[in-house]
Design a binder for these strands. Structure first.
Lengths: 235, 235
DNA sequence: GCTCTTAATACTGTATACACTTCAGAACGC
DNA sequence: GCGTTCTGAAGTGTATACAGTATTAAGAGC
């Protein structure tokens, strides 16, 4: 018996699924590094000095190196033999690729979700949309942004395909790097919001092709926004 | 100057892009492990003993653990604190998810490729298809199988979206685990082959919707095949 | 002054050592 | 006999040590 028996009896109800989340050091380090890279606190293209970074994080090289392997798999750094980890520079093209990929997943999933989602789930989606619209009404960018991301992910999740959900999640995560280039112009913001409203309506009537075309429009809008932003502000 | 000058002058032509491929130990180990898992040489669900496996591979725990982090990111193993790496068991549902995801990518990419691929590239695709069909004529399963995989990947690559290509590649790689469940029945094999022929024709005329519907049929066929196979042979 | 060579330094790649957790079985009480 | 506690072994998590490679700077030759 590894746990305190009193605890065990306390939990004897049905709490067995509690995740508890005991992170290891390399997990923690990976998370920290991910943030640092994504938020641009480490220059893209720069090499990562393991001893230096390890010291600043207060860990030895071992968990740090393990974390770097994870980040490499996620495409955030490149690993070069005898040079170590190099923070990956995202070409504009790659960003557009990622956005396009996200949209492709969402379009596929919207079709699937029309078949598989329960009425309750769809209502949930719609009410979340409403919340977002109301945040738009208040011009609350941060709340809007978070809800927006949540909605896109929810749409994908409702298709019930774990593989696609995972891919969508990691890609979206990586895009945090460029997400500060966000809704600049009021008219574009308004348009995006109305698209979301349309999406919810189409979802409620399980209209696959309508959802598809709205998402396609949404993609075009995003790409355009990105291209404009990147002209001024080279990544 | 790090290299022997005579070498440098020898290479002064235009060989600078040679990949050379100096793998590190953890890369090598990751590749080996990937194969072992994918080919079922390590039982799904079993824990991986680091010292034991390291000894059998002739490496210390350090590169082995680093390799495991990579495999974990790829979803081949789960990492549990104080228990180490556990070979992931693929539920049937997850396999179906992956197949569906692959098809979704392919459908999206076929549409994109119709716009972006050059005539030459399309011809290349068509001739590869012909090669595969001729292998089908000889009932050469292995060659057929390889070409089949190549064709699917090529179609995706022709869309020119790195993100989608990468995802397609890793997912296909993971599916090697269940690919031994392959074309059992002659009629299904014939049907799949004819679908490929149709795909090439449609691609030549850049007929997006035709390609989409063929790929959808192809998916249905694959799913059906998988379901039948998995009924008999539980994974 | 410039280039090439060479030596020293810094840093990565790998192995080993130590600490802590988990698990299994023995010892013990009842 | 059954359950509980303790103890030891086994194994993972992390830190450190060592080896080999790249890079920088100094020096020699011209």
């Amino acid at each position: 018996m590894t746990r305190d028996p009193t605890m065990t009896t306390d939990l004897s109800g049905d709490y067995s699924e509690a995740p508890i989340l005991q992170r290891t050091l390399h997990d923690e380090v990976a998370a920290r590094l991910r943030d640092m890279i994504v938020e641009g606190r480490i220059d893209p293209g720069s090499r990562i000095n393991e001893v230096q970074l390890g010291r600043s994080l207060g860990v030895s090289r071992t968990p740090l190196r393990e974390a770097l392997k994870t980040l490499a798999s996620e495409g955030l750094v490149d690993l070069v033999r005898n040079k170590g980890a190099i923070v990956r520079t995202f070409a504009i093209g790659e960003t557009l690729d990622m956005v396009q990929a996200l949209s492709a997943i969402e379009q596929t999933c919207s079709r699937l979700a029309c078949d598989t989602a329960s009425a309750e789930e769809i209502e949930n989606f719609c009410s979340l949309t409403e919340t977002m619209v109301s945040e738009y009404g208040k011009r609350n960018r941060l709340a809007y942004f978070k809800l927006n991301q949540q909605l896109h992910q929810l749409l994908v999740d409702l298709a019930g395909n774990q593989t696609l959900s995972r891919f969508h999640r990691t890609t979206q995560e990586q895009l945090r790097r460029v997400r500060f280039i966000d809704i600049d112009k009021a008219d574009i913001w308004a348009l995006a919001t109305s698209q979301h409203e349309g999406l919810a309506v189409a979802f409620r009537s399980r209209d696959k092709s309508k959802m598809g075309s709205i998402l396609e429009d949404h993609l075009v809008l995003t790409l355009q926004r990105l291209r404009e932003a990147t002209h001024a502000n080279e990544l």
